[in-house]
């Protein structure tokens, strides 16, 4: 039986352990395409978050009435409807963001995170669990996109602009990072840093475990030696008692 995880664990799993951008490397099309500015990254991430929550909830709700043979087309229809609604909403509430996201907004329909979570999680779990899974994955995707966009915008343009406010401004910039090859390079570097930290952490953890095993083995060996010495002593005493009796 699968281990039941709490809502908090479910969210943390999507944020860090199974982060869609840096660990699962999913949804690369918008990840590389829209992360030219922090506001774009956050906007795209939040759009995917809302689509994920709604689709996971709807799919978890209808999973028992959808015939298994046609579940994928049904999921795609549901996802397409939700994405269309989000597209209308973004266009109405933030036309600037809508223009910036461009073609990547309708392309959320074919984002593998959405269909992946629908098929791998929502179709097998309760509505509540599916919503928390969607929140974790959506927030993880937003975190991934924001991190990448922050690095690219800061180093690529020399400034960070959000809500019309410039948080940092410099005339020195590596404009290459804002271009498409710069997206690959930045993503690769961030994944490399994360993996280096992870490997280092695992190595340290292994070293601590090895030390603990070593100590435990030494203790076990000492115990065995003590037990053997005791047994030898007892045997010697028994022998001398026998000799005395004879």
């Amino acid at each position: 039986m699968a281990r039941k995880i709490t809502p908090k664990q479910n969210i943390l799993k999507g944020l860090f352990e199974q982060n869609p951008t840096f660990v699962l490397v999913l949804g690369m099309c918008p990840t590389l395409g829209v992360t030219t500015s922090l506001s774009n990254g956050i906007g795209m991430g939040l759009s995917v978050l809302f689509v994920l929550i709604l689709t996971n909830a709807v799919i978890a709700l209808i999973k028992n009435i959808v015939p298994a043979e046609i579940r994928i087309p049904v999921y795609i229809i549901v996802i397409a409807a939700v994405v269309t609604l989000i597209e209308y909403l973004v266009n109405a509430l933030s036309p600037t963001l809508y223009d910036s996201l461009g073609i990547y907004l309708p392309l959320i329909v074919v984002n593998c995170i959405i269909l992946g979570r629908a098929e791998a999680y929502a179709s097998d779990n309760s509505i509540k669990d599916s919503i928390f899974d969607a929140m974790g994955m959506g927030l993880g995707f937003t975190l991934g996109l924001s991190t990448l966009a922050f690095v690219r915008e800061l180093l690529g343009t020399g400034s960070i602009q959000m809500f019309g406010i410039t948080f940092f401004d410099s005339t020195v910039a590596a404009s290459f990072l804002v271009s498409p090859p710069g997206a690959f390079l930045t993503l690769g570097l961030i994944i490399g840093i994360i993996n280096t930290v992870k490997v280092d952490k695992a190595r340290k953890k292994k070293a601590i475990m090895d030390e603990k095993i070593k100590v435990a083995l030494a203790k076990k060996a000492a115990k065995q030696a003590a037990a053997k010495a005791l047994a030898d002593e007892t045997a010697l005493q028994n022998q001398s008692t026998l000799k005395g009796a004879m």
Binding site: I77, V78, A81, L85
Partner: peptide, 13 residues
């Protein structure tokens, strides 16, 4: 089933 699903989502959108 697919037609009915499509009709419902079209209505919602």
């Amino acid at each position: 089933f697919l037609s009915a699903t499509a009709m419902i989502v079209t209505l919602v959108t």
